[in-house]
Simulated assay, not measured.
Amino acid sequence: MTHDWKDEAARDLMSLGGRLANLERGKGSHVWDTEGNRFLDFLGGIAVNALGHAHPVFVEAVTQQAQRLAHVSNYFATPQQLELAARLKRLAKTGDEGRVFLANAGTEANETALKLARLHGNKRGKGTILCLNGAFHGRTTGALALTPKAAYQDPFAPLLPGVVAIDPTIEALERAFTDDVAAIFAEPIQGEAGVVPLPDGFLARARELATEHDALLILDEVQTGSGRTGEWFAHQALGITPDAITIAKSAGGGFPIGALITFGEASSLFYPGTHNSTFGGNPLASAVANAVLEHIEDTGLLENVTRRGAEIREKVQELPLVSHTRGAGLLIGIVLDGPVAAEVAAAAFERGLIINAPAADVIRLAPAYTIGDDEIAEFLDIFAASLDAVAHSQENAS
């Protein structure tokens, strides 16, 4: 059978990566393609679909708000925008001084955070922004400067000056922190590097050094935020207070939204004319995010995230080719015995399971917060079969 959709994609879409299937609908943790094939989605749109697909809360919020007011310019506030900003401040525990800038995506939130860092540094004559090797903060030119991967950066050099990448170790952190540092960007768990948590004590030391050197600690919680780790924000489990965090992905449950949330004195750095967004904080996106976050909170889904994440990690540990697991909540990295993650992900897809391989030896899971016994049982069956298939292929090759 000719895959006409692949021909159309090749003809009409920019060549920016392979497309595995032509998906047309979803329900809960499952999606279907245009040929009727059914898949269990354990990647969740890369940590986006917190409530799964076509959840009634999501659908109702989109429908009701679209019938009332979808977009106004940033000359105006809306009740939905104000409600969301107050909600994010409460969940992030910013206190009264906190402020929220609503954007459209994680990359845009990180671009905003970069400008925050420059505002802070320029006031003080500081020109250096630190980021971490292994980090991923986005693909726009500013965020890309914070993403020290040659394959991503080199085609677009020169990038934003003054950004220095360091190894994610306390020793490297202490060596790099001078009085010229305006800010440090870090992900509590580096998702695109293979779900790699920062070393114990790293962020606590970063907080100390940032305070000592009058720099900002900016945490990218695009993947880890909005409940993905079982806490509203991953840094809350560490007992530290950053100067700013960026969020997106799960916050809208599938509707595009991002945000920069500031704490304390960092909240007063922006002033009229220094930043804005045409679509950021529009009433439709804000209404959906309010509904998604309210449902997560009111139904105790964070408890399910913690419990189901621990259950999955425990059960996959018994499977072939699995070395160990890492991550938190429902952001899980399954580390394999060898660099066969791409083969495992492909074998899983052939059997109707969507996962991905962010590193050569790591499988990433980021399913919906709503998963239960049935979804986990189906996942384990397909994943085990996929691991077996790759293991047998290795044996035959040897």
Score class of each variant (00 low, 15 high):
22 N>T: 09
25 R>P: 01
364 R>P: 10
174 E>C: 10
262 T>D: 10
20 L>I: 08
342 A>V: 08
187 E>R: 10
319 L>Q: 05
196 V>T: 14
174 E>M: 06
308 R>E: 07
306 T>V: 13
78 T>A: 03
285 A>C: 14
85 A>D: 12
288 V>F: 10
117 A>F: 05
263 F>D: 09
109 A>H: 02
31 V>F: 01
148 P>A: 09
227 G>I: 02
112 T>V: 07
179 D>K: 03
150 A>W: 12
323 S>L: 06
220 D>Y: 02
239 G>F: 07
374 D>C: 02
398 S>I: 06
243 D>G: 12
293 L>I: 12
203 L>R: 04
40 L>H: 08
99 R>I: 13
96 D>N: 14
24 E>G: 08
392 H>V: 07
377 A>N: 14
302 L>Y: 04
59 V>W: 01
37 N>F: 06
308 R>G: 07
362 V>G: 06
297 E>S: 05
233 F>C: 00
381 D>H: 10
21 A>Q: 09
96 D>T: 13
344 V>H: 13
230 G>C: 03
333 G>Y: 09
53 H>Y: 08
106 G>D: 04
242 P>H: 14
139 R>I: 13
153 Q>H: 09
347 A>Y: 11
313 R>S: 09
31 V>S: 01
267 S>Q: 11
276 N>Q: 11
52 G>Y: 03
300 G>P: 00
337 D>K: 07
39 F>G: 04
199 P>E: 04
142 G>D: 02
302 L>Q: 14
202 F>V: 00
222 V>H: 01
375 E>D: 07
289 A>L: 09
109 A>V: 01
181 V>A: 05
167 D>S: 12
375 E>S: 06
272 P>E: 14
303 E>V: 14
1 M>H: 11
277 S>Y: 01
33 D>R: 06
363 I>S: 01
44 G>R: 14
152 Y>C: 11
335 V>N: 04
14 M>E: 07
52 G>M: 13
286 S>T: 05
184 I>P: 07
185 F>Q: 05
133 N>P: 01
65 Q>G: 00
317 Q>P: 08
275 H>W: 15
350 E>G: 15
285 A>T: 11
147 T>W: 00
366 A>V: 10
227 G>H: 04
44 G>M: 12
29 S>D: 12
118 R>L: 03
218 I>L: 08
253 G>T: 13
37 N>Q: 15
287 A>G: 10
153 Q>W: 05
56 P>W: 03
387 L>H: 07
223 Q>L: 13
86 A>T: 08
190 Q>E: 13
89 K>D: 03
229 T>F: 05
102 L>N: 08
174 E>R: 15
270 F>K: 10
5 W>Y: 00
120 H>S: 05
26 G>M: 01
341 A>Q: 06
121 G>A: 05
149 K>Y: 11
38 R>H: 14
234 A>M: 04
44 G>N: 13
88 L>S: 12
48 V>P: 00
277 S>M: 02
172 A>K: 13
173 L>S: 13
64 Q>S: 14
45 G>E: 08
287 A>S: 13
347 A>E: 12
225 G>I: 03
368 A>G: 06
78 T>Q: 00
345 A>V: 10
357 A>L: 07
294 E>Y: 09
34 T>Q: 15
146 L>I: 06
121 G>C: 04
252 G>M: 06
299 T>C: 01
95 G>L: 15
171 E>M: 03
94 T>D: 12
134 G>D: 05
235 H>A: 02
